[in-house]
Amino acid sequence: MDGIHDIGGMDGFGRMARDESVFHAPWERTAFALASSARMVGNTDDFRHAIERLDPAFYLGADYYGRWLGALEVRLRERDLIDSDEVDRRAGSAAARPRAIASAGLPTASPEGGPVRTIDRRPLYAVGQSVIARDLHPVGHTRLPRYVRGHHGTITRVHPAFVFPDTNAHGWGEDPQYVYAVQFAASHLWGAGDHSVSVDLFEPYLEAA
């Protein structure tokens, strides 16, 4: 989805503030621990997608662990494990009740182990090759940032194959795919700048240039 989370290159968020805190308040620790350990069917990709599906105003106003807390509640209620009305009553307020759009599909199983997979085909692309990041706009979860779509880049590393977030977040299977480090020139992405930006892109996000 082309969501509020996809902020690479956006203007308006101001100067860097040197806030070194990991947690600002005890509730942020609680939110981290609950989101990390609550037992439910799902995976990291659907957790990230739950954050992305939060109402944009909620997302921007919630701060980092506020988004974790919101996404945790969204995931729990989508699985009928809790009822947000009950949370309102117990909290004595609906002020922090998260709003979110529905997912295109939820996982039906939880994975074992990490996301790296061995697949029985060769990578389509090689180091040094020119590629284009496809101009895709999937309705669901994706890890293809908007700021590289349609741009030319160069493969600098071929990583192993990983579970494909675009399907895994929705219970549509792991469909593992090779991942590539693709280097883009800032002058191409932004019209200015002498640096490069390297983005890790799954094979289906790419086409040969």
């Binding site: 690479g8 480090a181 640096h195 490069s196 930006v197």
Partner: peptide
Amino acid sequence: EVRVWDSSAEV
């Protein structure tokens, strides 16, 4: 030379 790495996958 500045190289920025956007960790957009699980690497």
